[in-house]
Design a protein around this nucleic acid. Structure first.
Lengths: 186, 186
DNA sequence: ATAATATGTGACATTAGTGACATTGTGCTA
DNA sequence: TAGCACAATGTCACTAATGTCACATATTAT
């Protein structure tokens, strides 16, 4: 469990150590003390929460680094493989889930940055997947790319529910690559 | 009886090993020494007591196991609810998942002790759920109870794949309660 | 058994907490 | 704009806790 010392926080905020300690004393910043002389430690999560609350910039080094991983959800293995090839050529690691259950487990366990989702998987409601995922605090950074052969209104519905992009099947490798690269950035 | 080494405690507290040893020497943290060179060991209970005494955060991995939880996977809400009633009456907390994706996310996030699984959910292959779950190291303690209206050979197949028990629909509340209690024990 | 890893120790280097006081920043009024 | 009050932040010196390093030796894994 990585924590920060008062000194490190002072550096991150470009502020005097004395000030950090005052923030801690006043409760503005949550932390705890070591047994010895009471040296302070702050959980990274608490520090980030503090920074966000005060609209302060979050240092790159502290941003929770989601692995540059792409989860491919598609019941048709050939399609999944072809998406995988595109992802690999762009330099990203991949996971393939051919069913909803697998997809849920993988998403929760590996926290990929991007999930491609086939809307029209038999017996699996892609919409509810989007809906449910968007409610999960732990997945707020996830980018969802819907891939489907359905009509535009279906894709639009997916976007309304919270998908970040949509592609119609058959998709162009170029478009997909571009989406991967774009979403990996921010 | 599981104990912690000085190194493990150093990791948990994000502190130098030297410091942990000083805490032990000064009696701030209670522990004992192995006969050899005097390597330190600390009972988990003592460590938690120490953390609480100093208002330090307790690592997830050490928290005493959460309340015994049952994950109910069934697409028909009335059935799910009735299983939930049985579980509650036996004193257990419950979660309900009505789709495979939800089930996968919940299983991974909440690590319940028991999962009840409806084999015949439309578009969701219960067998592959069992198979996939059994491969997951993180879910090795999970008990799977298959509940289905299918014939005996289907249930047998589920058992072969790794289910721990099976019930035919309609099931008797008594049987289900008994299974819950039995599986919660070991 | 043997190799790889983890731990304890002492001496020493760094860093953090504290209190008193100086400095800066902000908002207000004239 | 100048002057003022008040709060927040920075500075400094001192002390004590924590970190670092090298090395011997348990302990664990192969």
């Amino acid at each position: 469990m990585k924590t920060l010392t008062s000194g490190e926080i002072a550096q991150y905020c470009d502020v005097n150590l004395r000030t950090v300690i005052r923030w801690l004393e006043s409760g503005k910043l949550k932390g705890f003390k070591l047994p010895g002389r009471g040296n302070n430690r702050v959980l990274i999560a608490d520090f980030i929460e503090f920074l966000e609350r005060h609209e302060m910039p979050i240092p790159e080094a502290l941003k929770p680094e989601a692995s540059p991983l792409i989860l491919i959800v598609d019941d048709e293995m050939p399609v999944a493989k072809s998406i995988q090839r595109v992802a690999r050529r762009a330099g990203f690691d991949t996971l393939i889930a051919t069913g909803g259950f697998q997809a849920g487990m993988m998403l929760s366990q590996h926290s990929p940055r991007i999930m491609t989702l086939d809307l029209s998987m038999p017996g699996m409601d892609g919409y509810s997947v989007i809906e449910y995922t968007r409610k999960q605090e732990s997945q707020k950074g996830l980018k969802i790319i819907v891939i489907s052969a359905l009509d535009d209104s279906s894709l639009q519905k997916a976007m309304d529910l919270g998908a970040d992009a949509s592609l119609t099947k058959p998709f162009s490798n170029h478009d997909l690559t571009q989406l991967f690269e774009q979403f990996m950035q921010n």
